[in-house]
Design a protein around this nucleic acid. Sequence first.
DNA 1: GTGAAAGCGCTAACAC
DNA 2: GTGTTAGCGCTTTCAC
Lengths: 324, 324
Amino acid sequence: MEDVAKLAQVSLITVSRVINQPEKVRSDTRKRVEQAIKSVGYVPNLIAGSLASSKSRIVAALVPTLDRSVFSGTIRGLSDRLAKDGYQLLLGSTGYSLHTEEQLVRTFLGRRVDALVLTGLTHTATTKRMLRDSGIPVVETWEIGPKGLDMVVGFSNQAAGTAMGEYLINKGHRVLGFVGGQEPRSEARLKGFEQAAQRGHQITVNKVMLTEGASYAAGRAALAQLLTSKPQPDAIFFSNDALAVGALMECQRRGIRVPNELAITGFADLDIAQEIVPALTTVQVQADSIGTSAANLILQRLSGLPMLSTRLDLGFSIVQRDSG
Amino acid sequence: MEDVAKLAQVSLITVSRVINQPEKVRSDTRKRVEQAIKSVGYVPNLIAGSLASSKSRIVAALVPTLDRSVFSGTIRGLSDRLAKDGYQLLLGSTGYSLHTEEQLVRTFLGRRVDALVLTGLTHTATTKRMLRDSGIPVVETWEIGPKGLDMVVGFSNQAAGTAMGEYLINKGHRVLGFVGGQEPRSEARLKGFEQAAQRGHQITVNKVMLTEGASYAAGRAALAQLLTSKPQPDAIFFSNDALAVGALMECQRRGIRVPNELAITGFADLDIAQEIVPALTTVQVQADSIGTSAANLILQRLSGLPMLSTRLDLGFSIVQRDSG
DNA sequence: GTGAAAGCGCTAACAC
DNA sequence: GTGTTAGCGCTTTCAC
């Protein structure tokens, strides 16, 4: 930076201004400096800048898993929106562990990220305290609830579960299956699903709670398990499209006709849901919008604008296709 | 940090040591400091640390796209391996644009990342110069070639294309189809594929070069296009499993029997390849290993260890399944 | 519109 | 094993 300043015959601060607030420098001076920057090949040290200004232009996001998952849409939405305003995304995966989440939050706060995006509303007490003390904007996503740390963008997983339960019951199914992971959002969907069942008449719910992550193979295995359960379900709600797709493939292998013999529904409306044969009936959620909305809230807050709302319920809808 | 030092009755540097090199501090002092850190709720400012030590403990990776893509395995491998050594991954997507890549490289270098992982061997002259000047470890991935910037982890896309061409020709196919994107790696696969065709007798290759990204829908559309081409292919090599899966679904819709009427093969061996019915014959590449190997090279270099090899050809293999 | 001085919060280097 | 000093490369603040 010193070299640039000397070459352009200006002070350090003018070089800094040309980079950060070019409109505050007269155009001839600016051009001289820009020229000098090029000829020196100067790459500003953003670390030093961050230390001095206590702004990092980095937003961190924590998701349970990076795998071909429902969260990738949210990450894309976040990343794209933030990039437009010159912010970068620092990514962490918690593996569904609150303890890992706590450690990552600590590190990210140490890096003085400008804002943090979390998945879910469940966190350790320490995580919550650190976040509150830090004073930076925080967005919790993929759930919605009365009390959040700061801002929230999501939908009601429980209501989605209820909606799917009612949908299947209305279709005449009486023995329902549920397959999901042992994590808060899946459990909320199950809770809603079971509520719908209780409100129906003579409805049974057989459930499989997975210990591993949601994969095609896990869906296949869960299907096999439910097919041996008594009474045998005539409709299964999978808490994730990947699971449902795996089950659909297994049905094809076994010659089980979907939806005639067995209805199968999923959650998230991933790309493959509408491509697979039979096309998958699923709960559509706006994964991308969760990301862009979270980014918008953050950007708005960081720019000091007044906040209209800090709690967005993006809702969900059941997309009826061919599988159930 | 000052508060912690006062409370523990030590100097700043001792607090620093407790955090960064605990073994260099006597255990009773260490405990006193750790106690103080907790009671103050001290979160070290890693930005200041980075500035002083010129080490950021951040590695950046640039991939063409974050979408449900072949690169997600590599990212996972990278991220997991780096996390073990306390490094974080800063992610950027270039959208297959060398210009965007250049801008991101500039920003990342500005953040003084400790190392950089790139996709492919094709970069702008400015990108190459900046990278060389920076002196940090750089790993280029997903290709292999005689000249790289620094370290390379990948395989020969061209050889993979040739292998798939020979495989299909040996199976008796004479009119081949190719579907891929307009990007270096896909083009290399096509080049190899066409070479195999030229070496065969009376082999025709009809190709579809996509302008959009690889999606199920794009595969479906490309299939439709090739089915109207003359002569009509009896085997199609898709440069990406997502495309092949889309085509497979479309075949199912149209009642085209695979592989009897039409053979379909893919590239990458994504999870779904072995799940779909019929299971997809594809080129298997070690997407995860590319990530972990890149991370290993970087970690080794950063720790100052002597480098055995800086150019890893991880190879590929054709996995024969049911689709072709 | 431009500049000088001070300091962001930490660590390297060297001393003790 | 622990402390002191001097900076890392910028931006802030306040002058002019």
